[in-house]
Amino acid sequence: MSNSFTRTSGTSVNDTSILDTPILHAEGLTKRVASGERQLTILSELDLTVLPGESVAILGRSGVGKSTLLGLLAGLDTPTAGELSLFGQALSELDEDGRAMLRAGRVGFVFQNFQLLPSLSALENVLLPLELSPRAGEEGTAKDWLNRVGLGERVTHLPKQLSGGEQQRVAIARAFVANPELVFADEPTGNLDPHTGATVIELLFSLNQQERTTLILVTHDHALAGRCDRCLRLEEGRLVEFDPSEVTA
């Protein structure tokens, strides 16, 4: 397939023993939405394979469908056509609840607008994914994670008492607290100033490395993309691999 991009070699991935089993595999993924009278194709027969431990950046202009793709990959939405499997499980075989259960405890999220619940303290926000997993109630774990993101002193603070960067650090702690295999990050620095953004990215990547998590990052920031193992650009509904150093150079 001319438009496909399939990883075949194991460059920069530390653990080679599980390389052959992709954590995420998409084939012919298509998403069309109704726009008035006509159908609008956002994603067109897109292929993607992500192996465990990889970090993958997806770039693209505003409105090109990055968030739609992320929603599909995370099983938050269903494709119009094509096959997608997550952790070796075909998502088309699952209903919405089945997809939710598949995510529980295995997938973490970091959003552009943080998505912290305003009525919950920092600690309670971090606890939320833990409460859904059987290992729940580990308040200590949640506190450890807040310590690791440098907010150990702010556990009782409500989101509105925290700055944007601090809120995103809480969100990162929340993404990693359940020890997920895969973390999706949607424009994690989109709402932050460059300096704060850099701090947050530093934190995200270092935790990703320490935890050996697979990371799928959606961004329009080439520098940020350059820190990932692979960079893909979303263009006209398809993914194209590129080398960010060439673009930024």
Binding site: A74, D97, G105, R106
Partner: peptide
């Protein structure tokens, strides 16, 4: 929003 987040973190409709 809470419900959407919980769905995101893997809660089923039943839950």
């Amino acid at each position: 929003d809470t419900a959407a987040l919980l769905r995101c973190f893997g809660a089923t409709q039943r839950q």
